[in-house]
Amino acid sequence: MIVIAVISMKGGVGKTSATANIAASLAKLLGNGAVGVIDLDPQNSLHLHFGQSFQVGGGLAAASVMDTDWADEIYCSEYGVDCVPYGDVTEQEREAFEELLETQPEFIGKQLYASGFAQKRVVLIDTPPGPSVYLRQASQCADVALVVLLADGGSYATIPAMETWLEEMHIKRPELKSMYVFNQVDGMNALGQDVIEVVRLHLTSRVVRSVIHVDESVAEALAFQKPVAAYAPHSQASHDIDHVAKQLMQYVVQ
C-alpha cells in the first residue's frame, strides 16, 4: 500500500478536487478497487466528488470516537475509488475526534490497516490546509506528501514554510518523499508561468512535470458529483490529471 497525503499550507488551492480526481485517474490506471481515499478534512466534501449526496454511515470521525471499525464507513463508488468520508459531525464530536488524534499520533495509520484499506494499491488522504492535527496524522503514515500549489504569488510565498515543515518531518521520517503539483494553471497568465519556472528551477524533479490547467469542467464536475474524467473526458484538466497520476506513480515506484 502506498499512502499519499495531499497537503497545502494555504486554503482554496483546489486540493480536495485534485485528490478526488487524481484518485479516479489512478483507479483507471490500477483497476477498480485498487485506490482508496480518506477524507481527513472537517469540511467533509471529498465524497461529493464520487456521487454520494446522501449519508450512509456516520463517517470516520464519529466511528473513531465511538471506537468502531471504519469498514462500515467505506463507500464503493462507481468510479472505482473507495471512499471513507469525514462525516457530518457535531462540534463536540469533532473536538473529541481531534483530541483522540492528539493523544494517539499513529491512530490513522493503525485504522488504515484495520479497515481493510491495506489491500489497496494506493490510498490518498485529503487534509485541511495549514498545520493541524490532521496533517500530523497524515504525515505520520504517508509514503508521499503531495503538495498542491497555485501558480501565483500567494502559493509561492508558502513554499519556504512548507519546505521547513517537510525538513522537520524528514528528520522524524526519512522515508517520507515529497512532491509538488501545480493546480488551476492559466497559460495566459505570465506571472503564473514565471512562478512555475522558478519553482521548477529550485525544486527540480520534486515538481510533477505536468500541471493541472484551470478548467471550468472541474467545478462543473463537482456540481454533477462526478470526477472530471467522467464528466468531461476530453477536457484539458482531465488529461492533465491523467498525466499527473502517471508521473506520481513513476516517482513513487522509483
Partner: peptide, 13 residues
C-alpha cells in the same frame, strides 16, 4: 494543444 473557451471550459486536442 488545448482549446480554452470563453466560459472557461477546455478541450485537449
Amino acid at each position: 494543444a488545448m482549446v480554452r473557451l470563453q466560459n472557461g471550459r477546455t478541450m485537449s486536442c
